[in-house]
């Protein structure tokens, strides 16, 4: 067996290893697959206790969700909220991540501490004051209120992540540019930022996904059907009485595809940034 020669593993152990990983993969993929399969079943087949993988496949659920409900509107709202959260979050925090990574200025440590502590904030502590501020500004029931609320999570998170990425860009580059007569802003704009483009993209995507899946603020701030985001809108398909799971499953698939693609692109770089920020204080 060529494999055992290469890895020095007995065939029995190889089988055990692969069997475990196959079972784990099945558990990981199974629920997603089940929802996907169910989304192609007609309503009576989804609501039946009979165990079938495929039954009378149809696209009717998708047609209904896209044509007869506010799904596309909610989708648009979610994109709007998530995109603005991402853009504003990354734009604001990029310089901060850089300053915290490079300069040892008074106030640096407390700032790092604030970034860390805000990760601990339960949604319940900020939601009421922010709700009342939004109510006073007349912003309740608008996407703007959600963008602002999401920024409370996105800004410290992005700054923290970007600091970790900037740490991994050698300071020798900064020094070389400084010798060539570049000021601190010039170094940031012309030297570091171009190098950090993948980091900015990944951080941005993650901010996007966090906003995309935000439930609590969306449930509390938005009151009208046409302003719902997906995270809240999807709850409308499965009320306590007469839930319509066939529509929920197809809506879930439609929500997951874009988020999943974005995620699979971003995840490779995500964890190194998160843990890097924490360990290289």
């Amino acid at each position: 067996m060529s494999r055992s020669a290469r890895t020095g593993r007995s065939p029995l152990r190889s089988v055990g290893l692969h069997a475990t990983l196959i079972v784990a993969s099945l558990i990981a993929v199974g629920p997603i697959l089940w929802v996907l399969l169910s989304s192609f079943k007609p309503g009576y087949a989804v609501q039946s206790s009979e165990l079938t993988l495929v039954k009378d496949p149809t696209l009717a659920n998708y047609a209904y969700v896209l044509g007869e409900t506010s799904f596309l509107r909610w989708f648009g709202n979610s994109v709007l909220v998530a995109a603005f959260t991402m853009l504003v979050g990354v734009f604001l925090s990029a310089t901060t991540g850089y300053a915290v990574s490079r300069f040892n200025f008074p106030g640096r440590r407390p700032l790092m501490m604030v970034f860390l502590v805000t990760q601990m904030f339960p949604v319940t502590i900020l939601i009421v004051p922010i709700y009342m501020i939004m109510a006073r500004l007349g912003l309740i029931n608008t996407p703007t209120s959600l963008i602002i609320a999401n920024l409370t999570i996105a800004v410290p998170f992005c700054a923290w992540m970007l600091k970790g990425y900037f740490d991994s860009i050698p300071t020798a580059l900064d020094e070389a540019a400084a010798i060539d007569g570049c000021g601190p802003y010039g170094i940031f704009w012309r030297v570091v930022l171009p190098l950090a483009r993948p980091a900015l993209a990944v951080t941005g995507f993650y901010a996007f996904l966090t906003a995309w899946g935000e439930v609590a603020y969306a449930s509390a701030f938005i009151q009208e059907d046409r302003n719902f985001t997906l995270a809240y809108g999807l709850q409308q398909f499965v009320p306590q009485f007469n839930p319509q799971w066939e529509y929920l499953t197809s809506a879930a698939v439609l929500v997951t595809i874009p988020a999943g693609l974005v995620f699979l692109y971003a995840q490779r770089h995500l964890v190194s940034g998160l843990t890097g920020g924490g360990t290289k204080g």
């Binding site: 997603i32 879930a252 988020a259 699979l264």
Partner: peptide, 17 residues
Amino acid sequence: VLLVLPWAVPAFVSAFA
């Protein structure tokens, strides 16, 4: 890739699933 997939699904979608 297969094992990472659950992370790619937004949490509220996983909850409904």
